[in-house]
Design a protein around this nucleic acid. Structure first.
Ligand SMILES: [Mn+2]
Ligand SMILES: [Mn+2]
Ligand SMILES: [Zn+2]
Ligand SMILES: [Zn+2]
Lengths: 141, 141
DNA sequence: TTCCTTATTGCAACTTTTGGCAATAATATG
DNA sequence: CATATTATTGCCAAAAGTTGCAATAAGGAA
């Protein structure tokens, strides 16, 4: 299934329009798979849609996140990165060497439920980054 | 105990210097208690140290966070805010109305331990923001 | 297909944040 | 207290991100 076929209906269902800019950006996110900065998204999507501006990239990434097609992440650089929304997961990142690993959301499920029952809130988002020391960097202290 | 008496030794112990700029910024964070943006910190600290620049505020907040005297937080605006480091806690924030509440770190302790044992990482930071719907906003759906 | 409505984009100005480098000032030492 | 060392700051310029508004184009209706 093409990106257009996959994502257009999701936007239409919410009353939004598919545009060449949005499609190009979704395409970049979809085929990269990883976390991309707005600048990286722009650099690639720009090739498909020459007139594309960085302003539109910022607005579109925010829009896609707002509508559940992309997920924003704070990976410690102080700047937001984005990825296509697929399986629910979180990240562990080493403060020393930067090594990352993914953690399935399932592992935190019960904690989320405890948080919900204690607070009365219904938690929606789930794409956190936990910082610490990786096994290797613990040795060197 | 004054801010100077409280924080100077902590910096010295790590080989750093106490300056009028750092003291003013610590003072602002300490007596506010809440989350402040760099601009808010600048606005207040500036009154005590007229020559203070925004550049220094950014650098100092980052420095204080790096050294455990302040904690950065992503509260959903896309911009970092900071607070003085006191008890360990996290935040719940409503996507709809913005209402926030604090959650003691103790509530997540066992999940942190599970994460550590599963991953081998030693988790250091703990100041997360969970997003969702508050009890009130769930009614209106 | 053509027309109409309005969501979306590009542009330009503006705000926020970062980085290099020389001047300044905290603190250790004599 | 005077001097030396170097961490820290201010200044300036650049990079990253945001906003208002007029022009454009997606998609529904005729
Ligand atoms: Mn991710
Ligand atoms: Mn907090
Ligand atoms: Zn590591
Ligand atoms: Zn609410």
């Amino acid at each position: 299934m093409s990106c257009a076929e996959e994502y257009t209906p999701k936007l239409r269902a919410r009353g939004y329009r598919m545009t060449s800019q949005r499609l190009a950006i979704l395409h970049v996110l979809h085929h990269s798979g990883g976390h991309l900065s707005p600048a990286e998204v722009y650099e690639q999507a720009h090739l498909q849609v020459p007139g594309l501006t960085e302003t539109t990239v910022y607005r579109t990434l925010d829009f896609l996140a707002e509508n559940g097609l992309a997920r924003p992440a704070h990976m410690g650089s102080g700047r937001l990165v984005y990825e296509i929304a697929r399986h629910e997961h979180h990240h562990l990142k080493c403060r020393t060497c930067g090594t990352e690993m993914e953690v399935e959301h399932a592992l935190l499920k019960s904690m989320y439920q405890k948080l919900e029952s204690e607070s009365g809130y219904k938690l929606t988002d789930s794409h956190l980054t936990f910082f610490g020391l990786c096994p290797n960097c613990q040795k060197g202290d």
